[in-house]
Design a protein around this nucleic acid. Structure first.
Lengths: 192, 192
DNA sequence: TGTACATCAGTGAACGCGCGTTCACTGATGTAC
DNA sequence: TGTACATCAGTGAACGCGCGTTCACTGATGTAC
C-alpha cells in the first residue's frame, strides 16, 4: 500500500465519507453497518478508526460535508442567477425521488437526525440555517422577513413532499404529490 | 394467566400494537427491538409470534392501525365542522414536536417506510390517500381539483416542517420553522 | 357430577448472525547518523 | 551511500452484545362422555 504519499490519507478519508454518505441516504444511518461501508470502500474493518473515532462521528462528518456541498450549490445558483423555480422543479422530480443515494440528505435523514445526540443535531442545524437563508436570498421579491418566512415554508414543503413521494407505492399518487407540492412551492417562491 | 377469556387475546394484541406504535414513532422502527417492545408490554419474547408472524408484519399492522385512527379523526373533524386552520396549528405546535411517541406516524416514519417492502408501503399508501382526501374535503373553498392540489401541498408542508423542527437543535429556529410553515399552510387552506 | 383429554396464550432458553469497537501486528516510507 | 530505527495507514481476527426468530414446554380453561 502506498503510504506517506501526501494527500493519500485525506483521499482515503474522503472516499470513506463519500461511500458512507451515499449508503446513509439510500438506506438510513441505523440500517448501514461500518463493515459494509469499509468493504465497499475497499478497506478492512480496523482502518475505520484511524479516520473516525466512532460511527456517530462519521454521521456528523457526513452531514457537515454533504450539507456544505448543498450550501455551496445554493451560493452558485444565487451568483449565476439560476431561478429558484428551476431548483424547486429539480428537487421535486421523479429523478431525485428515485436516486436517494445521491439526493438531499435532509429528506433522507431528517427524522433520524432528530434522534441523534446534540452534537450531531448541532452540525445539521448550523448548515440548514444557511441553506434556508440562501433560498430566501434567491427569491425574486418581498421584504427580508417575508422572504425568510416563505423560504422556510418552501424548504419544508420540498422535504415533506419528496419523502411522501418515496414512501407511497402508487406511482400515480407519487407523481401527483411531486407536481402539486412543486406548484405550491413555486407559488410561494414567486410571491403567490 | 387468564386464558380463554373472550377478548383477552385481542386485548393483548392491541396492547402490543400500542406499545410498538409509540416506540416506533419515538425512536424509529430500526432502532426498536422486539424484546424491548414485549418486555414493555409485560410479556416475554416468545409470545410475540403468537400474535404476529414477523417484525415486518408488526410494522404493517402498526401503520394501518395508527393511520386508521388519524383518518377517523379527520372524519370527525369534517363532520363536526372543526376548522382546518385549527388542525394545522395543532399539528405544527411545540407540543406535537416534543411528543413524537404519540404524534403523527408519517412525520416520524415516512423516510423509513420508503425503504420497507412493498406490502408495507401499500398499507401506508392506502391510508395516506384517504387522509389527503379528507384534508381536501375540509377546505373552505375552491374546486375539487384545486382543493386536492392544495391538500397535498399542506400535508407535505406539515410533515416536512415538523421533522425539521425536531431535527434542529436551536429552539428559536425550531419555533420559527413551525410558525412560518403554519402560516404558509393556513394560507393554502384558506385559498391564499 | 367427575374425570380425561384437547386447546392454546404465554414462557423462557437457545439459535445464528451482524453489529460497533479493540488491538497486536505488518510493511512501506521517512529520518538520523 | 548504507544501515538502523521511527512512523503510521492499513490488516484482520477477536471482543461482548443485542438482534429477530425458534421451539419444547407450562398450566389454566374448555369440551367429551
Amino acid at each position: 500500500m502506498a503510504r506517506y504519499e501526501k494527500g493519500q490519507r485525506d483521499a482515503t478519508r474522503r472516499h470513506i465519507l463519500d461511500v458512507a454518505s451515499a449508503q446513509f441516504r439510500e438506506s438510513g444511518v441505523a440500517a448501514v453497518g461500518l463493515a459494509g461501508i469499509m468493504s465497499k470502500a475497499g478497506l478492512t474493518n480496523g482502518a475505520f478508526y484511524t479516520h473516525f473515532s466512532s460511527k456517530e462521528e462519521l454521521v456528523r462528518a457526513v452531514l457537515l460535508d454533504e450539507l456544505e456541498r448543498r450550501e455551496q450549490r445554493q451560493k452558485d445558483n444565487l451568483a449565476n442567477g439560476v431561478a429558484l423555480e428551476a431548483s424547486i422543479r429539480d428537487y421535486l422530480s421523479p429523478r431525485h425521488r428515485d436516486r436517494a443515494g445521491s439526493g438531499c440528505p435532509t429528506a433522507a435523514l431528517a427524522a433520524e437526525i432528530a434522534r441523534h445526540p446534540k452534537a450531531t443535531r448541532d452540525a445539521f442545524t448550523a448548515k440548514i440555517s444557511g441553506i434556508i437563508a440562501l433560498i430566501a436570498a434567491r427569491m425574486p421579491e418581498g421584504s427580508a422577513e417575508e422572504r425568510r418566512r416563505r423560504a422556510v415554508a418552501i424548504y419544508a414543503t420540498m422535504v415533506g413532499a419528496l419523502q411522501l413521494s418515496r414512501a407511497v407505492s402508487d406511482r400515480q399518487l407519487s407523481e401527483e404529490i411531486l407536481a402539486n407540492a412543486a406548484e405550491a412551492a413555486i407559488g410561494l417562491a414567486n410571491g403567490r
